[in-house]
Design a protein around this nucleic acid. Structure first.
Lengths: 217, 217
DNA sequence: GTCTATAATGAGATAGAC
DNA sequence: GTCTATCTCATTATAGAC
């Protein structure tokens, strides 16, 4: 029995390396050569385990997307169950949507941070259908349910106002989680976006106020 | 005198083609081959006129960034001049910041839309210092002045709350202008982000409410 | 300024031995 | 499953004729 040089199997190491490099350099910028090198395997093994580059990418996405989509489905369902005992507010729904991903960003380790960068980046790569397809497939059903919930909260509002409010929320979320230097530049160095302490509470307050203002009939 | 096959000079055609392809496929995804083909020139001409790929990219950015940065500087100054006659509101400052870019997006033609996609994408590419450097150099000074103006509007607020509010605003702006399919997905086809009619007014209302809520001391 | 031709490198993918 | 070796193609960049 050979002593393994690595604690993880080759496929796992390849997935981890691909996740990191795709998230940092994008689909085109990350080469299979670099991925193989970082995973300490031969290039041919990547193709052996995962097929062509597009397939590798899809499997990188699926590994985390399924878990995350389930988590926001659960948090919404928990809220709907409570609804029988108390009225649900816009703050509740926003919190249910944001908590799972911000939790994973803060406590999920490097792999989750890499995946979340990839997810955020995908929201900006819509031209490339292949790039966003694995995300859309996974998230579309649950996001439709959230949209419906937002609409129910403001039954008298113009639907376009509610749609735009959701777009503003999702757009801000995507950028923040990209661990962007945006926060650092805005604050002129006073804080970084990596420091997400308090951002969840701030987003809930900020965007709830926005929803209420814009969705006023 | 040869009859020119094109109304534009070769360097202009190359810049236009590069702008479009960089904005749609990113820095790595757009090859010099494709850029040259789209500009109807030989590949060697690209290098002749603009040097290496990074230099070409920088010149694509600079062509529009200078004009846009000037425009938001002017709209801020106009506001500060009015300030002697009437109090300036958060709505005024947000409007001054957003109007120039949304105007250009709607009325500036394809070139401006391509550039704005590039700009939005850059806010997501912070790992690549070379990629965002030309943007930061141009926009940092004027954005610092806007940040200062936001802080002055809420003198009693926690500065972190104001910084985060700005991050939320800029993040949403970046995503919206990317002509993202996000809006289409959220509304389940009811409208597209390309249809930006009314988005300016909606953003001003939505984000003003968010600022006021979050910046309450 | 523009062309042809080509260098030099890196890309993704596969064949075949072990 | 893993390796070596190689194929084929696309990439950026440059040399040199006109």
């Amino acid at each position: 029995m050979a002593t393994p040089r690595h604690t993880q199997s080759s496929p796992d190491r390849i997935l981890d390396a691909a996740e990191q490099l795709f998230s940092r350099r994008g689909f085109y910028g990350a080469s299979l050569r670099d991925i193989a090198r970082q995973a300490s395997v031969q290039m041919s093994l990547v193709n052996y385990h995962f097929g062509p580059k597009e397939d590798l990418f899809r499997q990188v996405v699926r590994r985390r997307a399924d878990e995350h989509a389930s988590a926001i489905a659960v948090s919404l369902q928990t809220l709907l169950d409570e609804q029988q005992r108390r009225p649900v507010t816009i703050e509740d729904v926003i919190l249910a949507l944001l908590t799972p991903i911000i939790d994973r960003y803060i406590h999920g380790g490097e792999g989750w941070r890499d995946y979340i960068q990839l997810l955020s980046r995908a929201s900006h790569q819509h031209q490339d259908a292949n790039f966003i397809a694995p995300f859309v497939e996974t998230y579309q059903p649950i996001m439709d349910r959230y949209t419906n919930e937002f609409l129910l909260l403001f039954p008298d509002a113009d639907k376009a106002d509610v749609f735009w409010s959701i777009v503003f929320l999702e757009a801000a979320l995507a950028n923040i989680l990209l661990q962007s230097t945006l926060a650092e530049r805005v604050s002129q160095g006073a804080f970084t976006a990596t420091d997400l302490s308090g951002v969840l509470e701030r987003m809930v307050r900020f965007f709830s106020a926005g929803f209420r203002e814009l969705a006023r009939p």
